[in-house]
Nucleic acid binder design. Structure first.
Length: 489
RNA sequence: GCGGGCGUAGCUCAGUGGUAGAGCGUCACGUUGCCAACGUGAAUGUCGUGGGUUCAAAUCCCAUCGCCCGCUCCA
C-alpha cells in the first residue's frame, strides 16, 4: 500500500469512528489544530495514564537495581515572560528572515546571513544586490504564540503560551526540592499542552501547533549523568515496546554533533517509521542538558538554585575543622565547593503525547482476510491496539435477540460498566457486530448464547486470533482484567 | 513562505453550463444460535466559504479557508 493511501485510510477511519476530527471543522477548520473524538480521547488518555503510571507512580528500578524517586507537577501554560528570555526561546530561536518576491526566485534567507549567501538567479551576487531582487523587510519568525495578560494590550502585558512544559519544571525546581524531601537523583514529570507556531503543519496530527507533551526532567549528580542518560534512553525505548510498538519500526538515533542544540551534551531521538514518511520521525528526544537550564534561570532570576549535597558533606566530616558549610566555604575554591554545592545535571526524556497517539494508531491499523459465514475470505479492518491502550476493552453481545439472551447480556453489562470501559450492542447480525468492534480495536467480545441458559458460561473472543473460549459468566471481569495486563505477543 | 493537485451525503467517490447521484455507513422493522456487504423502508447535501460572469454555475473566473504532494522550515 502506498504511503498516501495508507494514511488516507487511517485518517478516514479516525474520522468515521470518532478518533480524530479537524479542529473547528464546521468553520472550515484551522491549520495545525486537531480535536480528539469520543474514542480518540479514551485512547490518548490511556496513553497518558500509562506513562504516568509507569514513569511517575511506579517507575522501573534504576541502573543499579535501586528504586528511583519521581514526582509530578502541573504548571501554568502562561508564565512570566522572563522565563523565555532565560531559556533562550524569546531571543535565540527566532531568526529574522527576508523573502525575495522576484518571480522565478521566491527565495527565503536569514537576514543576518545574507552577505554569505548566493542569489539563486545571479550566483555572483548576494540576495538583494542583483537589480531584479525584490526583498521584503526582515520579518521575525517567532515560534512562540503571543498573548496579552489583562485587558489592556501593550508591550508590558505581553506574554507567551509555553513552547514546552520543561521550563515550568526548572522554574519550580527549588519549590519541589523544598517541599518534597527529595534527594538527588530524582525526577519531576509533567503532562501538558505546549504551543509552537510551526512554519508548516504537516502529516495529520504529527506536526501541530498545539500539542501535548509528556516530559521528565531527571536531576542527578554531574558525575552520574552519563549513566542516567544511558538508562533513560533504554527505559524509554522499552516503554514503547511494552505497549506493542514493533521494534523494527522504533529506532533510537543518537544526534550528530552538528545537530545538537547548543546546551546539549548528547541527545537521542527515539524515532518511529510512520507510514507517511520514508525516514523515521521523532517521537521523543532523550536529551542530556547538563546544567544549562538551571544555570540560565539562576542567572536571570538571581535566585540560588544550587543543590546542597548533605550526604557527601556529612561523609567528609572527619577531614574538616568545622561542620558549618558557611564557615568552611570562605577560603575554598569553586572546584572544592562544587563537591558539596552544585547545580544538578539534567536528563530530559521529552515525549509527544499526540505523536505517540498517532504512532499507536498507525501501528494498530491492519487489513486482513477472514472467512465469512460461507467460508469465503472477506477483507477485515482491525485496529490491533495493545489491550491496555484500547479505548473500549470489551463488547457485551447477545448472540440473538431472544430466549432471554439480551436480558442476560444487559445484566452483565451493568455489572461490568462501573469497572471497565465496555460497550453493549444487540443490533444486526453477530458477525457484523464483531467486525464493528474490530474496527475500533476492542480486544475482547463477550457473547451470551443458548448455552449460557444451561450452564452460565459465555464465550470470550480474541480480536486478533478470532479464537473463542468458554468461561463462566462470573469470571468475565477477572478474565478481561488479566488479559489487559498481559505482555504483547 | 513557494510550486503542483484537490475540496460534492458520516466515509470513498462519480457527475465539465440545464431536475443532486452511487457504494459503504447510520437509523427503524423483519430475519439472524458465531464472524459485516440478507430483505423492506427511512434520514442525510445552500456541491468548503465569499464574490463575479451567465437566462441558468457543483461545472467558468477571482479571492479566501482547509487537505494532500514536493521544496523551504522544523531552537
Amino acid at each position: 500500500m502506498s504511503k498516501e493511501k495508507s494514511m488516507e485510510k487511517l485518517t478516514s477511519l479516525c474520522k468515521r469512528r470518532g478518533f480524530i476530527f479537524q479542529s473547528s471543522e464546521i468553520y472550515g477548520g484551522i491549520n495545525g489544530f486537531w480535536d480528539y473524538g469520543p474514542l480518540g480521547v479514551e485512547l490518548k488518555k490511556n496513553i497518558k495514564d500509562a506513562w504516568w503510571q509507569d514513569m511517575v507512580r511506579n517507575p522501573p528500578l534504576g541502573p543499579d537495581g535501586e528504586a528511583i524517586e519521581m514526582v509530578g507537577l502541573d504548571c501554568s501554560i502562561i508564565m512570566n515572560p522572563r522565563v523565555w528570555e532565560a531559556s533562550g526561546h524569546a531571543s535565540g530561536f527566532s531568526d529574522p528572515m527576508v523573502d525575495c518576491q522576484t518571480d522565478n526566485c521566491k527565495g527565503r534567507f536569514r537576514s543576518d546571513k545574507i552577505q554569505d549567501m548566493v542569489c539563486p538567479l545571479k550566483p555572483s551576487k548576494c540576495p538583494g544586490q542583483f537589480e531584479k531582487c525584490q526583498l521584503t523587510e526582515a520579518r521575525q519568525f517567532n515560534l512562540m504564540f503571543q498573548t496579552y495578560v489583562g485587558a489592556v494590550q501593550d508591550s508590558s502585558s505581553m506574554a507567551y503560551l509555553r513552547p514546552e512544559t520543561a521550563q515550568g519544571i526548572f522554574a519550580n525546581f527549588k519549590n519541589v526540592l523544598d517541599s518534597s524531601r527529595l534527594k538527588l537523583p530524582f525526577g519531576i514529570a509533567q503532562i501538558g499542552k505546549a504551543f509552537r507556531n510551526e512554519i508548516n503543519p504537516r502529516n495529520y496530527t504529527f506536526r501541530s501547533r498545539e500539542f501535548e507533551q509528556m516530559e521528565i526532567e531527571f536531576f542527578c549528580h554531574p558525575q552520574d549523568s552519563m549513566k542516567w542518560y544511558q538508562w533513560w534512553r533504554e527505559t524509554r525505548l522499552n516503554w514503547y515496546s511494552s505497549l506493542g510498538i514493533r521494534s523494527e519500526k522504533l529506532l533510537p538515533r543518537e544526534q550528530e554533533k552538528e545537530e545538537l542544540a547548543h546546551y546539549s551534551i548528547g541527545t537521542t531521538d527515539i524515532e518511529y517509521l510512520f507510514p507517511f514518511a520514508s525516514t523515521p520521525q521523532e517521537l521523543e528526544g532523550v536529551a542530556h542538558r547538563g546544567n544549562y537550564d538551571l544555570t540560565q534561570h539562576q542567572l536571570h532570576s538571581k535566585q540560588d538554585l544550587t543543590y546542597f549535597d548533605e550526604e557527601s558533606w556529612e561523609k567528609d566530616k572527619a577531614n574538616r575543622v568545622t561542620n558549618s558549610f558557611r564557615e568552611w566555604v570562605k577560603d575554598k575554591s569553586a572546584e572544592e565547593i562544587s563537591k558539596y554545592q552544585f547545580l544538578p545535571h539534567v536528563i530530559e526524556p521529552s515525549a509527544g503525547a499526540d505523536r505517540f497517539t498517532l504512532a499507536v494508531l498507525c501501528e494498530a491499523y491492519y487489513e486482513d482476510k477472514q472467512p465469512d459465514e460461507k467460508g469465503v475470505l472477506q477483507e477485515r479492518v482491525v485496529m490491533k491496539f495493545h489491550p491496555r491502550l484500547a479505548p473500549i476493552k470489551a463488547a457485551i453481545l447477545p448472540l440473538v435477540n431472544k430466549d432471554g439472551m439480551p436480558e442476560k447480556a444487559m445484566k452483565l453489562f451493568k455489572e461490568l460498566k462501573p469497572h471497565l470501559p465496555i460497550y453493549f450492542d444487540d443490533k444486526g447480525a453477530i458477525g457484523r457486530r464483531y467486525r464493528r468492534q474490530d474496527e475500533i480495536g476492542t480486544p475482547f467480545c463477550i457473547t451470551i448464547d443458548g448455552q449460557t441458559n444451561q450452564d452460565s458460561t459465555v464465550t470470550i473472543r480474541d480480536r486478533d486470533s478470532l479464537e473463542q473460549i468458554r468461561i463462566p459468566i462470573d469470571r468475565v471481569h477477572h478474565e478481561i482484567t488479566t488479559r489487559l495486563t498481559a505482555k504483547p505477543k
